[in-house]
Nucleic acid binder design. Structure first.
Lengths: 333, 333
DNA sequence: CTGTTAGCGCATTCAC
DNA sequence: GTGAATGCGCTAACAG
């Protein structure tokens, strides 16, 4: 392996000067600078990033800890983050936590031992890793979910407002008996979206009925089961609000299996888009989140946090957007 | 920061012994070993991964270079890879090349300077980065596409066979005038799938017509445009085979926009699944690739390559699976 | 089985 | 504006 010493010898300068040239310092004689560049080219020299990292006591890696890259919500978010990372000279390490606090903690640990420059994380329910990273003062941006007792930059969407908007849309369509499938009680997004559902009911003068709410696991199978259980009610709902994309898919699959159709048998609004929601038939009404923007914003916040670790944490809340499609068509008289 | 020397002092042994204990070497007195562990716990010591990497002249990072994580084909593949990486003690760095040889080359460069342990890569058309990595003898696994003149472990699917099976299914359904939308001429998968299309036609005694083939860019917009152009033919096709998932979506959107329906107006078979293909209406017949398995297999090959760099490269070809759904229903008399 | 020693490749003092 | 010297934290030789 050719080192900075080889380049120095070849160009007749000291290693220090080579280092200065390569890291783009101004105060180097242009003539020497040119010699160094020539030597670098001739030798095919490539700086050793690991050595640089050791010396600088930090790497150019960002970790992104999400529950599952196969969920399109996170896929697009990661893409947004990676685009920022690339322009800022960082690389993104992908970490699937699978909602498992132990995995989250393991990744947090890796972030620390590998001296990664920062972390973007969607916390699991107990947020073990988040606590660990907060204590170590690692530059960190929380996405999608809040964590009690942790002060950190955070990027959220307006869950309550978005959910309320989706449910209001159903109410406006003439539906009264509206069910809700939400996520686990310990997850802030689940509770916020449920709160939006309740506030929309209240605003519409509809009584909240506990029986019409299901707490599932944000996964496809959970949505399927919850839908089944709702259909088993003595008086099944006329409409349904589902608090995330995967559970919506599960619910739709359940309906399809039972030979029921949206919106004729039951109207549906889902939180969070799915890819090609237009192709699903009937096309699916969703409360869309700006997923790419979420990732991008997180990246920008992380960059700022690394540049000025001292400044107070900020929270950015992005807006959702109601995409009205076919599954929420107004009720027929 | 507490170092290995602090732990050594605290536990009354040498740094070398601490190192031995922490890297799980057998030949250490259990008693000393215990002392070391105690000291580690007391001091909250955490090894410095970067220093370890410098010393070992290698990191525990794998790069995965794909064109776009937002394509579900790659999403699932990356997940498969990450699962292997995790069990083998590696982390995965996500690199979106966007089919841009320059980006691919930039990432290849990063792999080298950051001393990553290995790479899994889906080559762009010119495969600049691949050449670079091959020269540097970086452990590398090619996925999805072959590259002429590069000897490396490779994971493919049987594109020609899968495409032929999909097209044969259309022929069996009574369709004769079958169009094909494939990818760029320089990409091996595009040509292999086209070859499968041709061989199925031949086997079915159908004359190959150049006019019924379109070369697009493997993206949604490309599929849309190609579909439009096919519909503009004096005598439009009765059926269509599309060589990847995104173009299939584009083609379906084009049909929807024109008020045409599959399979009544035109039957459709797409190569590569899309998420929730069942929910698309009419549900989409696909030649499904084992995407997760592709990633997993690549991970296993990479692990082996790192363990024994000398052994001759191997190519693994996985089977596709025809998922017959509604868009390819037999032709009505 | 354990300790001493050296050096991985670089960036940064500090002199000049 | 430049060079010599130092050490980041660890692991692998080697000697004992």
């Amino acid at each position: 392996m050719t080192t900075i010493y080889d380049v120095a010898r070849r160009s007749g300068v000291s290693p220090a000067t080579v280092s200065r040239v390569l890291s783009g310092r101004r105060n180097v004689d242009p003539e020497l600078s040119e010699k160094v560049r020539a030597a670098v080219a001739e030798l095919g020299y490539r700086p050793n990033g690991v050595a640089r990292n050791l010396r600088r006591a930090s790497t150019n890696l960002w970790a992104v800890v999400i529950s599952d890259i196969e969920n399109p919500f996170f896929t697009s978010l990661v893409r947004g983050l990676e685009d920022v990372a690339q322009t800022e000279g960082y690389h993104v390490v992908l970490c699937n936590s699978d909602e498992d606090p132990a995995k989250e903690a393991a990744y947090a640990s890796a972030v620390l031992t590998e001296q990664m420059a920062g972390v973007v994380i969607s916390p699991t329910s107990t947020a073990e890793g988040v606590q660990q990273l907060a204590e170590a003062k690692t530059p960190m941006v929380l996405i999608d979910r809040r964590v009690e007792g942790v002060e950190a930059d955070t990027v959220l969407v307006d869950n309550e407002h978005g959910a309320a908007e989706g449910v209001r849309h159903l109410i406006d369509g003439g539906y009264r008996r509206i069910a809700c499938i939400t996520g686990p009680r310990r997850v802030s997004t689940a509770m916020d979206r449920l709160a939006g559902y309740r506030s929309a009911l209240r605003a519409g003068g509809i009584k909240y009925e506990k029986d019409l709410v299901r707490y599932a696991d944000f996964r496809e199978a959970g949505g399927f089961a919850a839908m089944e259980s709702l259909l088993d009610l003595p008086e099944p709902p006329e409409a349904l609000f589902v608090a995330n994309n995967l559970m919506t898919v599960g619910a739709l699959e359940c309906l399809a299996k039972k030979g029921l159709r949206a919106p004729d048998d039951i109207a549906v609004v889902g939180f969070d888009d799915i890819p090609w929601a237009d192709l699903v038939v009937p096309s699916l009404t969703t409360v869309a989140q700006p997923t790419y923007e979420l990732g991008r914003t997180a990246g920008l916040l992380l960059k700022d946090r690394i540049a000025s670790p001292g400044r107070p944490p900020s929270t950015v809340t992005l807006r959702t957007e109601l995409h009205i499609r076919a599954t929420s068509a107004p009720r027929k008289p």
